[in-house]
């Protein structure tokens, strides 16, 4: 069973729709005990970083996410990915979960439209990532965001080239994964990534 963390994020239902479609057992929850009992965890997210972190803290979930992320696969999506990092300066400086080294800042380019919205091809730097199993290049995924991760190359599985490198799929090298794009809105290739996540449990 996958625990989908329910903290009021906008894309909760799309994520659950996709898991239902794929026949992957899941539970929408903010109960720490469910996260402990789950085989894997998905942290969805749309919105601003400080509000997201505040909701996690108010639900008493930050510690249990940190502990469980050492024991079972965790996938953060969009804001859920950004919150895996150490800190962000969206709206105001704010600490993240700190599961992956790095920070979140506004996309720096002045030459492209912000938000980065639409389908962008992924450049894969770690071919053997289990999330990408069975997905043939070119891989296009759907992005909607104005802030991006800044992290070490060894944490980056794939990036999107948008007048600069935007980390698209990141990992701590262990159980923790983050997708800046929305796999639940990225057509068949996105669904395959979710299926692959299920296969890791």
């Amino acid at each position: 069973m996958i625990a989908v963390i329910d903290y009021g994020a906008g894309n909760l239902f799309s994520v659950c729709n996709a898991l239902n479609y794929l026949g992957m057992a899941h539970k929408l929850t903010k109960n720490p005990a469910d996260l402990q009992a789950a085989d894997g965890i998905i942290l969805p997210g749309v919105g601003a970083f400080p509000a997201g972190m505040q909701m996690l803290e108010e639900s008493g979930l930050t510690e249990v996410i940190r502990t469980e992320s050492k024991k079972k696969p965790l996938l953060g999506i969009c804001l859920g990915m950004q919150m895996l990092l150490e800190k962000s300066d969206e709206v105001a400086p704010c600490k993240g979960l700190g599961l992956i080294r790095g920070e979140v800042h506004k996309i720096p380019s002045q030459r492209v439209i912000i938000p980065h919205m639409g389908w962008n091809e992924l450049v894969i730097t770690q071919q053997n990532c289990p999330l990408l199993h069975g997905i043939e290049a070119p891989i296009y995924t759907y992005f909607v965001h104005s802030y991006q991760a800044f992290c070490d190359d060894h944490n980056i599985i794939a990036y999107a080239d948008y007048d600069g490198k935007i980390p698209a799929l990141i990992t701590d090298g262990g159980y923790v994964y983050g997708a800046q794009f929305h796999p639940e809105k990225s057509g068949e290739q996105g669904l395959q990534m979710l299926r692959n996540f299920g296969g890791m449990l």
């Binding site: 239902f13 799309s14 729709n17 996709a18 239902n20 479609y21 759907y142 639940e184 809105k185 990225s186 057509g187 068949e188 996105g190 669904l191």
Partner: peptide, 8 residues
Amino acid sequence: TAKQVFIP
């Protein structure tokens, strides 16, 4: 549709 089609 949202239950069956996974694009925006």
